[in-house]
Design a protein around this nucleic acid. Structure first.
Lengths: 183, 183
DNA sequence: TAGTATACCTAACGTACGTTAAATAAAAAG
DNA sequence: CTTTTTATTTAACGTACGTTAGGTATACTA
């Protein structure tokens, strides 16, 4: 098998196992078994179990977040977020699993302090970006700031339904729910 | 030490460990160490690690949910949910940890299939209950059902912030956010 | 006070984990 | 064709886990 093929396959299976059983519930032996290679091959490509987990979050998770956020192009704010959320739902299965893993770490349900810190930095910058995006569309509103907050929470909730609970959310549903807040 | 004292102390420490390190990351030895008793004492009171975890979720978690939902008394729908959410935030630390553990299981981030199934049954009944509570207050609205959905999602999101991320959410904030949806 | 039940301990069993040493097979380079 | 590098394996090390056997105090009971 090609060098990068096996390395990638190991990571893909690892993502699946970390997702299903958590960091501590995942074993290198189980990963190797499912990949179909011997146990030390995992160590040939990844320094340690922790290293493998960190590479998934630090590289793949943040790559995916960056890729998604770069896609935003629509002008109307409801179109904008509808497109954003539909993009999330149409991500590849692998990206969805990585996203799920990231959410798990973000909620302190898995991973370690180091990863959590990195994520909270990203989160803060993203919340700020949402504010600057949404606020201009709400100039005349009395509860502008609260509306932004509710909108962010709704977006978080929809992403969680899509990624964590793996539910299908229709475009109609998304638009309807966004409209209730944006008026 | 009194019989029930130690049994309770073990469970309390267990909740803390399961919360911080997950099911697989928690060890009976660590629990016993922190409790200050010997390892087999845990087995004296609980059949197994799984049994201990299941007792926490099946008993304490659902007891807590029942207790909270029985408290709802206010008549106005915004008062109603504000009180409900404030109750959640004012729960004891132990109950909050149990709640957090439950959310973890509900999101399939921990626990097993059996517990997940039990939770999904409860969740379905609760969503239905929210519908019957909220809908009468929205008769004239065009997007009544969507509004109920958004409201439920907002409530879920606020609970998650309080319980999972351990954030303080003020009554003003809660009322403001609920009002944006209820008009 | 003798006997029984309760609360608790030390020590260990078997298993499975993360990790590594050491060897081999395959491929590339010279 | 030999040498070196890369890809892969088997086997094992040490550690830590869940769990249990078998014992000892303490407290209740008759």
């Amino acid at each position: 098998m090609n060098d990068q093929d096996l390395k990638l396959k190991i990571k893909r299976i690892a993502v699946e196992h970390f997702n299903t059983h958590g960091y501590h519930g995942t074993t290198i032996r189980n990963i190797a078994n499912e990949v179909g290679c011997s146990l030390p091959m995992v160590y040939y490509y990844y320094k340690s179990k922790k290293d493998l987990f960190h590479e998934i979050i630090k590289k793949d998770y943040f790559d995916m977040l960056g890729r998604e956020s770069r896609r935003l192009k629509a002008v109307g704010i409801i179109d904008f977020y509808t497109e954003f959320l539909l993009n999330v739902m149409n991500m590849s299965d692998y990206d969805k699993k990585v996203y799920r893993l990231g959410i798990k770490v973000y909620l302190s349900f898995d991973g370690d302090e180091e990863l959590l810190r990195i994520m909270e930095e990203w989160e803060a910058s993203i919340v700020f970006r949402h504010y600057t995006l949404i606020l201009p569309h709400l100039k005349d509103s009395v509860h502008a700031e609260a509306k932004v907050r509710v909108l962010i929470h709704l977006i978080e909730n929809i992403i969680e339904r899509m990624i964590v609970k793996n539910q299908y959310v229709s475009e109609k549903e998304i638009r309807e729910e966004l409209s209730i807040i944006m008026g």
